[in-house]
Amino acid sequence: MRCTTVLTTVLTTALAAGALAAGALGGAVPVAAAAPPRLGPCDAGQLCLWAKEGFRGTRQTHELTDVDIEACVPLPAGATSAALANRTGRPVTTYQSAECAETGEFETYPGGGTWVPQSPYQVRAFKVWET
Rank of each mutant, 00 (worst) to 15 (best):
W115V: 04
E105H: 14
N86P: 04
V10C: 12
S97C: 03
Y109F: 15
L7F: 10
L47K: 11
T9R: 11
D68W: 02
G40C: 06
A82C: 08
W115D: 02
A98I: 09
H62R: 13
T13A: 15
V31Y: 00
S97Q: 09
T58V: 13
T5G: 04
L49E: 07
A51Y: 03
L39I: 12
T5S: 15
A85D: 05
Q60I: 12
C72D: 07
G113Q: 10
L39V: 13
P74H: 04
A21R: 08
P74W: 05
A44Y: 01
T61K: 02
T108C: 04
G57Q: 00
T94M: 10
T88M: 11
P117A: 03
Q122Y: 14
P36I: 03
Q118P: 09
A79S: 09
A83M: 06
A33G: 08
P74Y: 05
L20P: 00
S119T: 15
F126H: 04
E70F: 01
G18V: 01
R59S: 01
W115Q: 06
A16K: 03
E70T: 15
E70D: 15
F106C: 06
L7M: 08
P74I: 08
G26E: 05
A19Y: 09
V29T: 14
A51S: 13
V73L: 12
T4E: 09
R2A: 11
C3I: 08
A34L: 15
A17Q: 08
D43N: 12
V10A: 13
T5C: 13
L84R: 04
V29I: 15
H62V: 01
G89S: 01
T108Y: 09
G27E: 09
P110T: 11
